[in-house]
């Protein structure tokens, strides 16, 4: 699945083929998602099997940073593998990573359905 937020802006920097980013790479997806017509909902409300996109994290500092370390960042597609009862959720991100997160944390992650 091609990720819409990625685009080469100016590849030929320093005369070599190193990839580099422009502001739009990180800002466009953010603005796009926030402007989307789909209503956002907390992650814990999404159903298993669904793929959603993260648009806002209402948690602070250290928590947001830890989420990023594990691969959860704004615009990231998240597939819900398990979401039952009051138990923790299991998520699939970046195709191959599986994460277990507590329900209380899932309430702080706002997503839109694709």
């Amino acid at each position: 699945m091609p990720n819409p937020k990625l685009s080469h802006c100016h590849e030929q920097e320093h005369g070599c083929t190193l990839a580099s980013l422009c502001d739009g790479d990180i800002l466009r997806s953010r603005q796009h998602l926030q402007a989307s017509n789909h209503p956002s909902l907390p992650l814990c409300m999404a159903t298993a099997g669904e793929t959603v996109r993260l648009i806002r994290i209402s948690a602070e500092g250290k928590l947001r940073k830890r989420l990023a370390d594990l691969g959860i960042s704004i615009g990231e597609p998240i597939r819900i593998m398990q979401n039952k009862g009051n138990g923790p959720l299991i998520l699939a991100i970046k195709n191959d990573t599986r994460l277990g997160i507590g329900r209380d944390l899932a309430r702080q992650l706002w997503v839109v359905t694709d």
Binding site: K62, L63, R66, L67, L70, P88, I90, T97, R98, L99, G100, I101, G102, D104, L105
Partner: peptide, 9 residues
């Protein structure tokens, strides 16, 4: 700190 961990295969 809320639960947040990787589940390795």
């Amino acid at each position: 700190f809320p639960l947040m961990l990787e589940l390795p295969p």
